[in-house]
Design a protein around this nucleic acid. Structure first.
Lengths: 344, 344
DNA sequence: CTGAAAGCGCTAACAT
DNA sequence: ATGTTAGCGCTTTCAG
């Protein structure tokens, strides 16, 4: 059924050359004369030659593959990171194997093992909600397979990471609300075990403290990042006595669901309750009022992570010198938080 | 730097067995006695053996890889398809190589070549906007590599396809608007070269015809699927004389942007203009009014496409018997279109 | 049930 | 500038 593939032997025979020359020419090795190279390429094209990656990889012990391991694929943030990674990786001739854990630690471990067995040359990963142990990444380090984390990382580890300053971002979000006159600021977030949420939370607390507002634990809502979470949070907030006058939600999508629920209960945003989200998802400026948020440049993060990893694989830099790369983030003010002044 | 890998030779030496036996045992070949197999597995585990996929693939001429080729990755529809494909593929032990063309025909051709050279065992693809020629898929068919299309397909080809009934969906959308009392229904869509948009358009026209409404070409707006397209379309619609009383937009995201723009111009939705979108993106019920739309079950489509492909690769079914699989879709009525009656 | 041995297609040292 | 040659690690006949 399948037609036999053309190999470099066929090309060599046809041109009365050795396979070595063919192999070199195909890699643009300057050792081969321009003329022979041209002949080889022409014949390869004519005969429909396609190189065998498996033979090549088997020989060269490189897979030219990067693993991309995340907690969720259906997230606009993760997708922009993926787009960035894919762009850089493809340009550099690397394939991607994508694995997602659906926020399950066990699946994350299984995925890590799988990618390890598939011998990815490097790994780009973001941890699931409650990953604490990092043992499943040990095999990589033991075999000197570089690993770089982004977004959700384990701060007390030796792995390289690409992140934003979550503490600062949380601080900015809360400070902005305070400056708008909010005094009872609820915080809707996810598992505080995870660095990103923990740090945004601590930024929020720092801001409160700096402005002389006592932290009130009853204003903290921890949930997952589903649409339902947004709705439930809104209901919880509506039930609070006295009612908050501001909310800092660590996810735009959740914020959108939350806002909608509040509005159906006749809460005016931002007049009654001001809202700040996180991520700068497209949804933020399609809802009303437009959502103030923290810009979280996923695509850039992906590009930086991929570039760093590939530079390491090339040998043009060494990842073990790099602890953390912090990408710029920042507050984007829109109408959902503007109790004072005007905005779009 | 890298530690040498354990191979089946190491296992064979250690256990005084041949590599053949090791190889068989590792594949659960019943020819190997339970006892030897157990010893082999234990040692493999103990020594940290991991199989070399390249050697295996080189030998067995199978890559266990499926190509996934799409026009865009940053789309919630495509992502749900991907999620479905990934689920099935992973479960069946296949890797995915993902390539996207950013709606460029040239890039699509390049990606097809690349995936072909990487020797994917099969291909799942959705075409870019203006792909007409299908020559870049010929190499696959020539080598009997199965290809299955979804969503954007070329109807006049022999390739298998997983789609929804776009004509019917377009008809339903338009009919619903008509039933709500709309008489001037604008249609915002994308390149009519592409089957999906062409068929939704023809469905829209059929509905108009069936209800005795003359088709008015000036109500047709063709654009890309960007946020900007939504805004521009809204402006065009506002400029129309007389103004439309309904819009059928073939994409929820574009619809959201369009609605927002209309609203800033004090158009009431649905009272002044009723709106129906397409895709059932999450954004649809987070905006106000909630968007009536066509449910387009991406995840299921991905699952069906992947399963069909893998069944073919297994030999448990033959893809060349399958022309088209049509997945159920249907109208979801929300408030954006309800001129009469009540909805959420 | 197990073993011997050939070879998948390519690369890279070494040789010329 | 080109050729020779020895494997990379595995699977799979064929032979016991």
């Amino acid at each position: 059924m399948k037609v036999r593939e053309i190999t470099i032997y066929d090309l060599a025979n046809e041109l009365k050359l050795s396979t070595a020359t063919i192999s070199r020419a195909l890699k643009d090795d300057p050792l081969v004369s321009k003329k022979t190279r041209k002949r080889i390429f022409e014949l390869a094209e004519k005969m429909g030659y396609r190189s065998n990656h498996f033979a090549r990889n088997l020989r060269s012990q490189k897979t030219n593959t990067i693993g991309f391991m995340v907690h969720e694929l259906q997230s606009s943030f993760i997708n922009s990171v993926l787009a960035g990674v894919e762009k850089i990786a493809t340009a550099a001739g690397y394939d991607l194997i994508i694995a997602h854990s659906s926020e399950s630690y066990d699946k994350e471990v299984a995925n890590a093992n799988n990618l390890f067995h598939k011998r990815v040359d490097g790994l780009i990963a973001s941890l699931s909600f409650d990953t604490r142990k990092m043992d499943h990444f040990r095999p990589f380090t033991e075999k000197s397979v570089p690993v770089i984390f982004f977004d959700r990382v384990e701060r007390n580890s030796d792995y390289s990471a690409v992140i934003i300053d979550n503490h600062k971002s949380g601080y900015q979000a809360a400070r902005h609300l305070i400056e708008q006159g909010c005094r009872r600021i609820a915080h809707v977030t996810s598992s505080l075990v995870r660095n990103v949420y923990a740090e945004r939370f601590s930024g929020y607390r720092s801001a409160l403290e700096d402005y002389g507002i006592t932290y009130d634990e009853s204003l903290l809502i921890v949930n997952d990042l589903s649409e339902k979470a947004g709705i439930v949070s809104a209901e919880q907030i509506l039930a609070m006595q006295p009612r908050p006058d501001g909310i800092f939600i660590t996810n735009d999508f959740v914020a959108a669901a939350c806002m909608l629920t509040l509005k159906t209960h006749n809460i005016r945003i931002p007049e009654d309750i001001a809202v700040v989200g996180f991520n700068n998802d497209a949804i933020g400026h399609l809802i009303e009022p437009a959502l103030t948020t923290i810009n979280y440049p996923g695509e850039e993060m992906g590009e930086v992570a991929a570039r760093t990893l590939i530079d390491h694989l090339n040998g043009s830099s060494n990842i073990s010198n790099i602890s953390t790369i912090i990408i710029n983030s920042g507050l984007i003010v829109r109408r959902s938080s503007l109790k004072k002044g005007v905005g779009r």
